[in-house]
Design a protein around this nucleic acid. Structure first.
Lengths: 168, 168
DNA sequence: TCAAACGGTTTCATAATGCAACCGATTCTG
DNA sequence: CAGAATCGGTTGCATTATGAAACCGTTTGA
């Protein structure tokens, strides 16, 4: 392996995200953290992960600001792992993965856990929209590489020039 | 390793998704496919991935119905790898990862690629909503494990009984 | 107060990954 | 149309990551 490829410097935000949380266990730990798990043993039992690996991942996730280590809330001497705001902001990623999995990886009629609004029990979904709230179909979405911005309708590209100038 | 843990049977859709696309390279390949790449050499150059690994991943992604192998569109003898509808439906996952990365993994002012609506150049974002369109804050979201459904307001739990009965 | 459980770390075996060399089929060049 | 270069892989070997089990000091429970 020599050294696993790092995408830290990639211009693409998705790639950098995968660099941070794209390994086999990290997102599963985050999922369990969303589920309310906080302690080493809880994660270990839930995931069936080897203890040395879990130890390493918890440390890494903490170093990267996704989890934080806090003294036990119930007065005990052990510590707990809690999601930080940065970690909690991974929520849409979890929802997106869940939605795809529900659709493609379950037999019709097969039971699965469900994500709902607490007060109403209503199912929760993801929407792709423009910043001003209009729904967008995926084929209307294009990725603008930096610094080029071809692949746009000329009109749209012009409009973009103005707003992007201040970024550089 | 004995055998890498499989989550195929997990009740949680996120876990099953990670089982299918949660490895180091698969989502990066999918990202490039969204970017319009179709050929072996294009992926290889873009990602800097070892050829044997790329070969393996392309095969696996095809077996799993995320890519499909098609004869070259430009009449050539080589084949191309295209996203299937199942693969295209990973779009929200990519957007969610991108959004998180933009927020937390770039210095202020640092350039990154951008996701916009083709016709207008407007930035694209993700929204979390209930099925009937109301926005939901993440702390209002709970995961109902199957088959239990505690952790809900009693009223909501009742309502849920009716709709879930037909699933089992 | 003694035993169990918790929260790890260390050691060792194995699986996954990366690199480089190789190879046949295709495509480009003169 | 011949020869060279490129494409699209496969194979073999070295290195890294992962997993299971043993171990160990600390904390908790009876």
């Amino acid at each position: 392996m020599v050294k696993r490829t790092s995408l830290k410097g990639d211009y693409c935000p998705s790639a950098r995200s995968l660099d941070v949380i794209g390994d086999w266990w990290s997102l599963l730990i985050v999922r369990d953290a969303f589920d309310g798990l906080t302690r080493f043993g809880e994660f270990q039992k839930s995931l069936g992960i080897a203890k040395n690996i879990l130890s390493d991942r918890l440390r890494t996730l903490s170093e990267r600001g996704i989890l934080k280590v806090v003294p036990s809330s119930d007065g005990g001497a052990h510590q707990e792992y809690h999601l930080t705001p940065k970690g909690r902001d991974l929520f849409p990623v979890m929802v997106a993965l869940r939605q795809w999995g529900e659709r493609y990886l379950f037999e019709p009629g097969e039971e699965h856990s469900r994500l709902v609004e607490r007060d109403t029990g209503q199912a929760i979904r993801l929407d792709i929209r423009t910043v001003d709230g209009r729904p967008v179909s995926p084929d209307q979405a294009v990725i603008l590489k930096v610094p080029q911005q071809e692949a746009l309708q000329p009109r749209a590209a012009e409009r973009l020039q103005k707003s992007s100038r201040k970024r550089s």
